[in-house]
């Protein structure tokens, strides 16, 4: 068997390149807490309206005692409900997503809030939003004829502004 020396060297370099990428990815996954949504939590998508967590009156923003925020959302053809949300910047936010019908995907452009929403499962994403502004939430997985009409709004405001809104009541009552 004949393997040229140059080829052996190149195979070593290739291995090094791939190894470098793997190291960076493992490093970011284990030490920077960067994780894709993977909570493997099942739910009966046909009975969301009866569930303790995702019935209509439970949806939207919840402030947790430790200052973090949990957002519960239902995706269904064709929208993400509740349709309008106001969220604080620079705050730990956990989104919990469920689908009431078919597969959807959702992302918030210019942020790393992105997940698939598979019926039968709860998709959980934790993130921090850094910049105030008006963001759309867009459906990014084909879900039927109205796929391109499936979106809703998120307004990100500074933490101080958000606290003020919430003490007056009204920013997120739905």
């Amino acid at each position: 068997m004949h393997i040229d020396k140059l080829e052996k060297n190149w195979a070593g370099i290739s291995l090094g390149i791939a190894g470098l990428f793997v190291t960076v990815i493992l490093g970011s996954a284990f030490f920077h807490g960067i994780h894709a949504p993977s909570n493997v939590e099942t739910i009966d998508s046909a009975k969301l309206h009866l569930s303790a967590e995702f019935a209509e009156d439970k949806l939207g923003v919840e402030r947790n005692p430790n200052g973090s925020v949990t957002v519960r959302m239902v995706a269904g053809r064709y929208g993400f409900y509740p349709k309008d949300l106001t969220l604080p910047a620079e705050t730990a936010i956990t989104f919990r997503w469920v689908s009431l019908d078919v597969i959807h995907g959702v992302h918030m452009p210019m942020s790393n809030m992105s997940t698939m929403i598979v019926p039968g499962y709860v998709a959980q994403v934790s993130t921090v939003l850094h910049h105030a502004g008006d963001y759309p939430l867009l459906c990014n997985e084909y879900c039927g004829m109205g796929h391109a009409h499936m979106w809703s709004n998120i307004k990100v405001v500074s933490k101080a502004q958000w606290d003020a809104l919430n003490t007056q009541g009204g920013a997120n009552h739905g």
């Binding site: 793997v22 990815i25 493992l26 996954a29 994780h35 894709a36 949504p37 993977s38 909570n39 493997v40 939590e41 995907g105 992105s114 997940t115 698939m116 929403i117 598979v118 039968g120 499962y121 709860v122 998709a123 959980q124």
Partner: peptide, 17 residues
């Protein structure tokens, strides 16, 4: 399936490697 909820991190990382 990186962005999917029905599989856990460990399996995704294994497949990423």
């Amino acid at each position: 399936l990186y962005m999917d909820p029905e599989q856990a991190h460990g399996w995704k990382i294994l497949h990423a490697v």
